[in-house]
Amino acid sequence: MSNPNLAVELAGLKLKNPVMPASGCFGFGREYSNYYPLSQLGAVVVKATTLEPRLGNPTPRVTEVTAGMLNAIGLANPGVEKVITQELPWLAKQDVPIIVNVAGSTEREYCRVVEEISNSGYAQAIELNVSCPNVKLGGLTFGADPKVLANLIKKVKKVSAVPLFVKLSPNVTDIQDLAIAAEAAGADGLSLINTLIGMQIDIKTRKPVLANKIGGLSGPAIKPVAVRMVYQVAQVVKIPIIGMGGIYSGIDALEFIMAGASAVMVGTANFTNPMACPKIIKEIADFMAAEGIESLEEIRGCAL
């Protein structure tokens, strides 16, 4: 059996394998470093960072649904200053590329955070969060309209010295329109999908379970939707795609790669199994070895 090479390149960013934890599901990496060395990962994608500290939404913020969960954390984070001074220096010592997810309420806020993160020198790439369903301002305001999205990307690109990935929402009429607009505006890559908007009602209290009422659906339940959207977007853009949505196994990850993704992100699976990412990396390698695949490029987009 050949020794498969899992390395991938995303907009100039060289990763030793295509697996990285999804933003919001991995904090700033410290907690999971108790389970395995983070250097095993392709990259670490940290929690959404905003200009000012945010406390997020009231509790309950999470609830389980069949083969998935709903969350309405609400972008809780310590703010860009503390992220740069207290979180990223530690993560930078873990020998793994860092991608910082950036969120905001205004174009100005996005630009300032991107600029500060870029200037800090800690991030190898930035993921622009224009798809959080759990905040009133920002989030989807920028991610639902191709023109608004393109304007934001153009402005943010001017202040970023590192590659910019734009994280798209599935909660739109046509994800291809947004993907095309993002590429045209200068995005270096796309990550998709963010969570689908959902709700669960407690029939005893007769009210929504989440304090925020609605929340983002993630987990195995959304995987077919996510694979379909990656497949659709891969048909209309040339920039690399990072696929995500319910990835729990190497098989799941390979589906995304065959649908056209260059790399994958693992979110909710970390909660079910803290060792999910290393397990998925091994399962991809095992499949490649068994099938005689030397490089993931051989199968990327093969289903298209």
């Binding site: 509790t59 999470v62 969350n71």
Partner: peptide
């Protein structure tokens, strides 16, 4: 509180500090 990760990564199960400025 309802929890997701249980290890401190997801910020699902927070409570407020006495002055309500921190979680």
């Amino acid at each position: 509180e309802r929890m997701a990760c249980g290890v401190g990564a997801c910020y699902g199960c927070v409570c407020s500090s006495a002055d309500r400025k921190l979680h």
